[in-house]
Simulated assay, not measured.
Amino acid sequence: MANHKPTAVLIIHGGYFLPAAWDAFGDQLRQAGFIVKCPRLPSCGDKRPPAATMNDDIIAVREAVQELIDTNNSILVLAHSYGGMVASEAISPNLYANNGKGAVGLILLSAWLVQPGDTLTDIIAKYGFQCKVDLSDNGDGTFFAKNAPESFYNDIESIKAKDLASKNVTHNLFAASGKISGAPWKDLPTTYIYCARDMAIMLPLQQSMVQDAVNMGGKLITKTIDSGHCPFLSQPEALLRIVEEAVTNLT
Rank of each mutant, 00 (worst) to 15 (best):
H80W: 08
L68D: 03
D155I: 03
D122M: 06
G141Y: 00
E89Q: 12
D155F: 05
R30D: 00
L108P: 00
V243R: 03
E245V: 04
D155W: 09
N249Q: 15
D118S: 13
S227N: 00
G117F: 11
L250Q: 09
A21P: 07
L78V: 05
N168W: 11
N154P: 02
S81C: 11
S181T: 13
G105E: 07
V243C: 09
P42F: 01
G100C: 04
D212E: 15
K146C: 11
Q115H: 11
G139R: 02
T248G: 13
T53L: 14
E150V: 02
P50C: 10
L18F: 06
P42W: 00
F34T: 04
D155K: 06
S136C: 13
C131A: 13
K167E: 12
M1C: 12
L188V: 02
T191C: 10
L205Q: 07
G100D: 06
H13D: 07
A90N: 02
N55S: 13
K101D: 03
A165T: 01
P19K: 06
G139V: 02
T53E: 12
R197P: 07
Y96F: 15
A20I: 09
V77H: 07
D46S: 03
T251D: 07
S81R: 03
P6L: 10
N55G: 14
Y82I: 07
V36P: 07
E89K: 03
S166E: 14
D134E: 14
P189W: 09
L220F: 11
A24F: 13
I180Y: 10
C38Y: 04
Y82D: 08
N94V: 07
Y127G: 02
D140H: 01
F232L: 09
C44E: 00
V247R: 10
N154L: 01
H229W: 01
P204G: 05
A175M: 06
L106P: 09
P49E: 01
K162T: 10
I221P: 05
N138H: 13
A64D: 06
A148P: 03
Q130W: 02
D187R: 11
L205I: 04
G128C: 06
A87P: 05
A200R: 03
N73Y: 05
Y96H: 11
A176P: 09
M85A: 01
I193N: 03
K160R: 15
P93C: 08
I124Q: 09
L108M: 06
T191P: 04
D198N: 15
A79P: 07
W22R: 03
G100Y: 08
R62T: 01
I69G: 11
A200F: 05
